[in-house]
Simulated assay, not measured.
Amino acid sequence: MPELRLPLDPGVRRDLDDLADAQGRTPEEVALDAVRAHLRQEGTRVRGVAGEPAREHADLLRRLGE
C-alpha cells in the first residue's frame, strides 16, 4: 500500500498518540479510520450537492432526451 506522509504539529501528534493509546490502537490505525470517515462523509455531501441540479431540472433534462 502506498504511504502518505503528513506533517503534524506537536499538539496534534500528542492528541493522536493519546487517543490511540486510550483505544489500544496505533496512531496510524486511528488516522486511517479518520481519513476513511471523512471521505465517506464528504462523498455523501458532494453527491447530494451534485444531484441537486439534476433534480431541479429533471423535466427539462427529460425533454432534452426525447
Rank of each mutant, 00 (worst) to 15 (best):
H38C: 04
D33A: 13
M1Y: 05
V49P: 02
G24L: 00
D59I: 14
L16I: 05
D18E: 12
G11N: 10
L39I: 13
A54T: 14
D15S: 11
A37G: 12
H57S: 07
G51K: 14
A50E: 06
R47C: 02
R55D: 14
P27M: 09
V30Q: 02
V30H: 02
P7A: 02
R25F: 00
Q41C: 10
E56M: 15
H38G: 08
R25T: 06
R14V: 01
P10K: 14
L8F: 07
D21N: 01
R47K: 08
E29T: 13
P53S: 01
E29Y: 04
D9K: 02
L8H: 05
E52V: 15
R13W: 03
V12K: 06
H38K: 13
A31T: 07
P7V: 02
E42V: 15
G11E: 12
A54V: 15
D33Y: 07
L60Q: 11
P7H: 03
H38R: 13
A20L: 00
V46A: 09
E52T: 15
R25P: 00
A34R: 11
M1D: 08
M1V: 08
P27F: 05
R5L: 05
E52W: 15
G43N: 08
P27G: 10
D18M: 05
R47N: 04
R14S: 01
V12Y: 04
P10I: 11
E56H: 15
V46F: 09
V12L: 11
L6D: 06
L8Y: 02
A34L: 13
L39A: 15
D21W: 00
G65S: 11
D59K: 14
A58I: 13
A58D: 12
D59W: 12
V35E: 06
A31D: 00
A37W: 12
A34P: 03
D15F: 06
A31H: 02
L6Y: 08
E56V: 14
L19Y: 04
T26G: 01
E66L: 12
L61S: 03
L4N: 04
L6Q: 07
E28F: 04
G65A: 09
Q41H: 15
D33W: 06
R5P: 02
E29H: 08
L60G: 09
E3K: 09
E3N: 09
G65N: 11
R25N: 04
H57Q: 13
A37S: 10
G24D: 01
E66F: 09
R47A: 04
G11C: 04
V49F: 09
E52C: 09
G43R: 05
P53Y: 03
H38W: 11
E29G: 04
P7M: 00
R45W: 08
P10D: 13
L19E: 05
R40K: 07
P53W: 04
H57K: 13
R62T: 06
A34H: 08
G11Q: 12
D18K: 10
A37E: 13
E28I: 10
A22S: 11
